[in-house]
Design a protein around this nucleic acid. Sequence first.
RNA 1: GCGCAGGUGGUAGAGUGGUCAAUUACAACAGACUGUAAAUCUGUCGGCUUCGGCCUACGAAGGUUCAAAUCCUUCCCUGCGCACCA
Length: 396
Amino acid sequence: MENKEQINDVITRGVENIYPSADFLRAKLERGEKLTIYLGIDPTGPTLHLGHAIALKKLSEFQALGCKIIMLIGDFTAMIGDPTDKKATRKQLTREEVLNNCKLYKKQASVFLNFKGDNPAELKYNSKWLAKMNFEDVLNLASKMTVSQMLERDMFENRMKEGRPIFLHEFMYPLMQGYDSVAMDVDGEVGGNDQTFNMLVGRNLLKELKNKEKFVLTMKLLTDNSGTKMGKTEGNMLSLIDDANMMYGKVMAWEDSLMWNAFVLCTNVDAEEIEKMKAEVSGGKNPRDIKMRLAYEIARIYYGDSKAKKAEKEFVKTFQKKETPDEMEEIKVNVGDLLADVLVVRGFVKSKSDFRRLVEEGAVTIDGEKISDFQIKIEKTNVVLKIGKKRFIKLI
RNA sequence: GCGCAGGUGGUAGAGUGGUCAAUUACAACAGACUGUAAAUCUGUCGGCUUCGGCCUACGAAGGUUCAAAUCCUUCCCUGCGCACCA
């Protein structure tokens, strides 16, 4: 009985859509089938972010139901890179970098997934099968999809309309990702709503090649109520290696409208309680206080109760009472060094010009004293440098 | 292969010989106001600078000119149309 509730929660909370249907998946889970489910991650950087966390959290719920979980690293795709992806201008990663990233991923993911015990989550790499494919294999795969099926994807459709280029190899990415499902012979896949197309390609391929009905569960993305604006969130995207204070602060900087989705997607607070809080806010309660709860709940998942509470205190102290925080980054400096140089080298500011502008705008203080000379030299150590509202640096 | 239209800063998109480090919008950053929210207002938004300037940048390489994002040549790339269609 309780199990049914648990299952219901798994297939509804934060879920955008389930293919072929929610009932299809429900029935399987209720029968107690040990499903194999995976999440694909592209190892483009050393950290996972909140978007990954949302999916990982869902996977952990499946793991708790006894499902077999695979975290798939798209090392093959990452190493090939995507030359048309100008935005990312991501450099091609070497084998070592990818492997190193993956190690870090496992650590970060283990907040949610259990990689040990009798039902351990498994880490796999798609280069294992994709790197081996020859042209014939690829053609065979490509023959399973038509061009118009590919063009259904919004991104392609839009570019087509706007007369912007679509390169042939771009059609291969969904195929490659789709083939992962086939190679691992999975029962289902979990991913963000933005990955729907790729995941469905995998579903088609699995049906074609193995006559298997793979389910696809898409998670809601963290957006505001209108569902459109991710806006500022990008910059405030939590990285899973942010420290507790940073996480707490970033959440507080989110738009209020993000809050409710965030509670559902990123915390364990149950639905009833969320509703209660919503009612409080419409009853006139300051949304800030609810957001503080959110920030606390999120920090708690990664750092535990006491550190989350500490982050909260730190936040109140620093930003509500405008005092200097207890902990901040410390950098070693020498008296007489040009402050601007030190900051550029350490990456706190982009360039000397950048620093000059900040000084001119009155954004830089040392021990609370606004400085006006951007060519200031370091006069003494053990002082607190503040740039803008959030950058605190201790010079030692 | 031929023809036409294009390639500009993080993005979109002006500019077609000097007044262009490049209008404008968005994003970003900072200041004011706040709840490190939103909205609003103001400022900044290539690098270096002895604050006089200097250097690097408008697809790439050459050239014309006192002077080029802007003109010419070649090349590369994109879209569209025509041709090709085994």
